[in-house]
Design a protein around this nucleic acid. Sequence first.
RNA 1: GCGAGGGUGGCGGAAUGGCAGACGCGCUAGAUUUAGGAUCUAGUGCCUUCGGGCGUGGGGGUUCGAAUCCCCCCUCUCGCACCA
Length: 826
Amino acid sequence: MSDRYDFHAIEAKWQRIWQEQGAFVVSGEGRGPKFYLLEMYPYPSGRIHMGHVRNYTIGDVVARYKAMKGYQVLHPMGWDAFGLPAENAALARGVHPARWTQENIGFMRQQLRRLGFSYDWTREIATCEPDYYRWNQWIFLQMYRREIAYRRKTRLHWCPDCKTTLANEQVEGGLCWRHGTQVEEKEMDAWFLRITDYAEELLAGLDTLAGTWPERVLTMQRNWIGKSVGVEIVFPIVGDTERLSAFTTRHDTVYGATFMVLAPEHPLARRLAAGTPQEEEVRRFCEEMSRQDKYQRTAEGQEKTGVFSGRHAVNPMTGKEIPIWIANFVLMEYGTGVIQAVPAHDQRDLEFARKYDLPVRVVVQPPGGSLDEATLEEAYVDEGVNTHSGSFDGMPTPRAKEAIADFMEERGIGRRKTQYRLRDWGISRQRYWGTPIPILYCKACGTVPVPEEDLPVILPTEEFEFGGPSPLTTYAPFYRADCPACGKEARRETDTMDTFFDSSWYFCRFTSPKESRAPFEASAIQRWMPVDHYIGGIEHAVLHLLYSRFFSMVLRDLGLIPQAEPFHELLTQGMVIKDGLKMSKSHGNVVDPDDMVKKFGADTVRLFILFASPPERELEWNEAGVEGSHRFLNRLWRLVHQRREALQGDTPAAPFAGDFSPAAGELRKRTHQTIRRVTDDIEQRLHFNTAIAATMELTNAVSAFEDDGSPGSRWALREAVHHLVLLLSPFAPHLAEEVWEVLGGQKSLVSCPWPEYDAEVAAEETLTIVLQVNGKVRGRIQVAATAEADQIRSLALGDERIKGWIGEKEIRRVVVVPGKLVNVVV
RNA sequence: GCGAGGGUGGCGGAAUGGCAGACGCGCUAGAUUUAGGAUCUAGUGCCUUCGGGCGUGGGGGUUCGAAUCCCCCCUCUCGCACCA
């Protein structure tokens, strides 16, 4: 053993040994209960970034810790290998997306290996391999058969930079999630997955995840699903056979509906106005609206504008005729694209009514209040008691809702309805680098699924021209096919799948990645699913995590997996920050993990990342802090090196029968207290920063310990260092292994059990009691841990300093908290 | 606007009703060294008349005791955003 901490040599050595031993390979029914630990697999963009390193380091600590605790740990890694950046790279550098992707995977795999992560590399998958994507196609066919996958023509979000359509979830405030480009609208045929069929279960499942998923993610998914319970009310149109249906959650206010409003895109908007004096005005308004950017037009705070359609509807409850308007603030996508406007009880409707001088009618009074419709400035939106509502007068809001809904259903005026904000998931992408959708279009037979035995539909990897439309659309060997039903010529679907399809079930594939007859093997799924602990970035709170939950429900309904929720515990790690900004290329503040590993070693980088901040919080990158972590590892190295002679000998596994000096006893106490602290910090809240701080304190105690050469002293020293190394091994595994070997450890730490603490040794025999007078600290005393409250009380009152502070004052109360403090109130 | 999470030394952070600032960084002084951005030792919240006083975004409250619980306000980050 050299006296220099040669981290390059040490890390390379142990990475080789782990690989040779297959230290992390999982096969068969291993010892112990299962633990499936997964980190979100990366897109092979070219290089690992600090966010990956953080994500995977956190996961690796948990994996190594659980393995030492006796679990059989499944800890796989793979590549989310389809996607647009590969095509962009092809355009920019003339490299085929397949080659670019493969090269990136090769490079990034080496980067991950150099960080010493405990992956079972025999299970590595890449979604761009036919072995993988054929099962995308197979799952798609099962969905098609069950009508979960369907095709329809619709308006879709189109990103001009991606040159493809986007799912609702991929549009953020009207901008492309990847490019930040204004998203356009395009009408086209596309494949959808009926995620809305699972809206209710997706919502209900969130309740079962409370406690194991962050509240933030649950809220985001709840908001995204956006459930509303209400009534769809039918309003006849005067002089027309058409009727208007409007969804509302406030059917209790229907008596106050004094006008109707249609979205400008509503198909009836222009037709209703035809032949009225307003026809021209309506035409102009609708055209102007269609020219405006929809996201700006429908943004909150936008001035409400509209036009009268020239026609009237009938309020089915009052029988009164009410005008039909067309306005910018009504969305065609939500509900029916028509609203009943109740200005007294809806702020938007009130603003609109005041602007265009439409009637306001109060039908709900707050408790004790009396709203005046002539002077009302703010809509009353809370619950109250119905008024001016015919036979429903005097009913409190919840009862009025029930009674009015019943009444409407009996008369056929309306029906109860649950509305969701969630839309079906559009998965068609007009791109090349993705899974081909296994569908054929035959002139005679129509839409025909590719027979399962013909899978996979292979994505051709010829040297195409990239940059324009997908080369699949012009490459005849791909799109030309025979119809499996009639044998005549058919055209193959040339759209590929959204890559979120790939990632919605990859965690299942890891359980049996080589399975060739099915997407995964039943017994492997039984053993390993669900993922016990899933770790990744918050950016997938809605996208990937919602889609994966949906897929799991579908796979369960297909009888392929036992349970619906795929991820038991979820940890969303915080961002890596530098100079107050997210570390990213666009901010120009990127620190390359490779540079750091070269300069300080993988163990240092891992340790710093874990030490600087708890996992769920942001992490401020600070190179001085990295040096601090490096110094700590160096200090530990030197400590072992300097005391090498003393440290070799009987391991603490062999109990020591003799006596310990007071100093040795003190060190043993610290050792066992540290085991307890580190274990609790990992187990209870994954706070690695405080766990590492505890190991630093023990290191300091070992440094300060003066070895008197006696057998007891030697034994206590060895015990401390042995345990210290075990405790550090999940964080800095290479150094720990190397030191362990020096200490005389016979086998790799990977197969060593996590240390247990001895509660008796860890116990404090005396405690420091804080003495307070009126809540202010005025002194401290040492008492035996076994001391009773009465004893502590009299010791405290007898203390000279405390006597001085009490003086002549009258003691009003003495609070004694055994083991903690005494507070004298005067 | 609604929802979630934050605000503690010069910095990252610790303490979840009981000693505020563990641990680390940085800084100061000293030792050692040819030298050091290496190592070791000591110190390091602010004020102080050296008794002590003040201090966890601000204000109020509960309590013997509050960074921690409750109410109001300010502020930052993220998500949703005219959803009927």
